[in-house]
Design a protein around this nucleic acid. Structure first.
Ligand code: NAD
Ligand code: NAD
Lengths: 221, 221
DNA sequence: GATTATCTGTGAGATGTCTCACAGCATGAG
DNA sequence: CTCATGCTGTGAGACATCTCACAGATAATC
């Protein structure tokens, strides 16, 4: 490794948004919990009840709902159905998001199965460079050769890419996806991706996750 | 859902540690990147080089290494081999961590395959309540019936549990694991688990991850 | 209609994490 | 040996997020 100049200043970090990143994550969780509650017949919920379900605190819940401009009523709490709708609006669940998977391997297949047919996420295409994988249809999702990416991403109006290829290929695939026009990436490879400023990458790094658990487990004795 | 009292005050949150949670995660990443570098023949690394690999900033790298008390040399940078050892010490990679998987399903199987035989993590046991799954050995890991959990966790000195059962079962399985004596949990079910104070839970929530990507993708246009 | 209980909305402060700038020093060159 | 270079170590401040406490509001009760 030879010396090179420092180009590591905060690049795509200033991900500015009115809604904190962590709040977005909790809203996703609240939405699922509230759907379950609706199914049980509940119509109203208090901040402390939602907090108990989400294993957080009541003020945190109220702050999150305040952040998205949703109001409740003292003594009655929040109207569950309205709240689910409000969260759906924020999380862009009212419009379908087309997604592409790259890497139909040991991980890609179960991930596709898991997400398949979950509104409003639609897996519009999968890509793999291995010829024997292309042409097939898995869970309603057609698998294309990698060199068709630009064309298919444009045609299907795909906004999000999911990377499930070996670590050594991840940056190349990421560059392809960005060039093809995706606006967000979910990355399962255990590397950090270099992307243009503003483009959001969500990393799911199982090795890191287990390292963290092991560290805190040993700290706790 | 009937009213109940607020028991949602900050409970297991004060996860106190000298090393910030995020730093632990980055150390895991640094370790892998540095191993790769060692394999290419590199012996020393500068903070800005490691920052480039990890897609972060040079001061962040120096701060992280300072936090674990590792020193470099001006003009020479950090000695890679020593740094890997230092990180291994912090991440408890110098002793084997025994892990148990609960839920040998569509997700559990590939996860087991992924982690299998990666030192120093050892999957010492798997558990499933479906009788047809028990008794078999997958990737060197024996599958037991759930009611043997307490016994096996004690015998194999298992410190960490991985939960890959349906959401509705996750809290019950978590309680079983805690009772059996695990000190940390990696949770793949899309719910938040209630655990005793101090016990660390790492959540891998794919639904939330995709919601976050979709949100920022749409924000970006 | 007045009273009361109790839940929401939110300012202000606490906490945790990241960023910046630069002093100090080890190293290689002369 | 001395000097100049350029990288590390770190204080101090910026920033993001969480927590707390309570004012104010509303629905239920009488
Ligand atoms: N298997 C798991 O359970 C698991 C868990 C967590 C993370 N991961 C990570 O996910 C990634 C994939 O793991 P896997 O086990 O599915 O690997 P895999 O080898 O089973 O599958 C990878 C797939 O990607 C395809 N591919 C490779 N390079 C490509 C490219 N440049 N363009 C398009 N397709 C390409 C291959 O043809 C293959 O089908 C790895 O980075 C791994 O670290 C895997
Ligand atoms: N399949 C995926 O790709 C995927 C991805 C992300 C998250 N998840 C989550 O992971 C979890 C498991 O998903 P899956 O697709 O593997 O489900 P699955 O139904 O294929 O497997 C679940 C396994 O858990 C076992 N089980 C159920 N209850 C149990 C209990 N109380 N004790 C012990 N074993 C029990 C079942 O016998 C089964 O073998 C779910 O919470 C799901 O939301 C799955």
């Amino acid at each position: 490794m030879r010396p090179f100049t420092d180009m590591t200043r905060a690049a795509q970090l200033p991900q500015r948004s009115v809604i904190p990143v962590n709040t977005i994550g909790r809203l996703s969780l609240y939405r699922r919990l509230l759907s379950d509650q609706l199914a049980t017949g509940a119509r109203q919920v208090f901040s402390h009840q939602l907090a108990a379900l989400a294993v957080t605190t009541a003020p945190q819940v109220r702050r999150d709902l305040m952040t998205i401009g949703f109001s409740g009523s003292p003594r009655r709490g929040y109207a569950i159905a309205d709240l689910v709708t409000a969260i759906d609006d924020v999380l862009v669940r009212s419009v379908e998001t087309a997604v592409a998977l790259v890497g139909v391997g040991n991980l890609g297949r179960p991930v596709l199965a898991y997400y398949a047919n979950r509104q409003p996420i639609r897996f519009a295409a999968a890509f793999d460079r291995a010829p024997e994988k292309t042409g097939r249809v898995l869970h309603g999702c057609r698998c294309y050769a990698s060199d068709q990416m630009t064309e298919v991403v444009a045609r299907e109006q795909i906004h999000v890419g999911v990377i499930a290829v070996p670590a050594a290929e991840a940056q190349a695939v990421c560059d392809q996806l960005v060039l093809a026009g995706v606006k967000g990436i979910l990355n399962f490879a255990p590397v950090r991706l270099r992307v243009p400023a503003g483009l959001h990458v969500e990393n799911v790094d199982l090795m890191m996750a287990l390292d963290r658990v092991a560290y805190f487990a040993h700290e706790h004795r």
